[in-house]
């Protein structure tokens, strides 16, 4: 049935988007398998597989809630943009006034290799960073962290989208401050990112907030997963830098995103036992 659903979804997508999706899924799946072996370790993997059904059942309501939030976000995205221009505050020139050419300065360090690195991080690294901890925390005996993570994801989206409506701005690549390095090097990636977000939703940076959320939880779970703590922090830092290096976000968006990410962790801990 998942095959059928996958087939239907794949049929609805244009070829260019399908190709990128397949790539991303392939890379993330491979990395996850490696991570399962190296980070989660075979012992926990075995116990996860043994208790897969009950754990999934337990996780289902949380995942479903997150699914609803994501679905609503994607359905309302176009209308949300109109709404944000109607009722929101256009802060593009304000942000530029505050930080000026910071992103341009960052981009002046560009080399093709660095651009490739950050491009892969922005797409593959980010998706892996979000997906893997779901697996890792599901494999733990105490899955409170799993529930908190899923909740934090949902809160990030809810609060993030609210802020998108209230504040509208284009990123540095769209106002001539920075070059669109990601899309110059890998134009096909824009088919994917434009499905997920609109270019006027830059404040706050959801890439940053979700990465910060994952890294914060990684620090909290350093006892069972010490390796993951190091990996997550490194990866999150790279993701955050990539959003600016690639000209997609302002430094202001990153700061706001980091605050949002940490805030959502705090809220999740407060309300999920």
């Amino acid at each position: 049935m998942i095959d059928a659903l996958g087939g239907v979804v794949a049929g609805l997508l244009p070829a260019t988007l399908r190709a990128v999706l397949v790539e991303v899924i392939g890379v993330v799946a491979t990395l996850s398998v490696v991570g399962a072996g190296v980070i989660i370790r075979p012992a926990r993997c075995r116990s996860l597989l043994a208790e897969l059904r009950p754990r999934l059942r337990e996780a289902a309501p949380y995942l479903a809630g997150l699914g609803v939030v994501l679905l609503a976000n994607s359905l309302l995205r176009d209308r949300a943009q109109r709404l944000s221009f109607a009722i929101g505050i256009n802060i593009g020139s304000l942000i530029e006034g505050i930080e000026g050419g910071f992103v341009a300065t960052l981009q002046s360090l560009q080399t093709p290799l660095v651009t490739t690195y950050f491009s892969y991080i922005y797409i593959y690294g980010y998706v892996f960073l979000l997906i893997f901890p779901l697996l890792a925390y599901l494999a733990l005996d105490d899955r409170v962290t799993f529930r908190r993570l899923v909740t934090a994801y949902g809160l990030n989206y809810l609060l993030g989208v609210t802020l998108y409506v209230l504040f509208v701005a284009y990123g540095p690549r769209n106002v001539g401050i920075a070059e669109p390095l990601l899309y110059n090097a890998f134009p096909e990636f824009q088919f994917l990112t434009s499905e997920v977000n609109s270019p006027t939703n830059v404040f706050p940076s959801l890439h940053t907030s979700l990465s910060t959320t994952v890294a914060t939880f990684a620090v909290k779970t350093r006892k069972p997963y010490p390796l993951w703590t190091a990996v997550a922090i490194g990866l999150a830092t790279s993701v955050i830098l990539s959003t600016m290096y690639l000209g997609i976000h302002w430094a202001t968006d990153v700061v706001a995103g980091a605050l949002l990410g940490v805030g959502c962790v705090a809220l999740a801990e407060r309300y999920i036992d």
Partner: peptide, 17 residues
Amino acid sequence: EVAPSDNTVVELLRSGA
């Protein structure tokens, strides 16, 4: 077909789409 930027417009042309 609508594409998000001129980069992707050219990509669609390049790929024969």
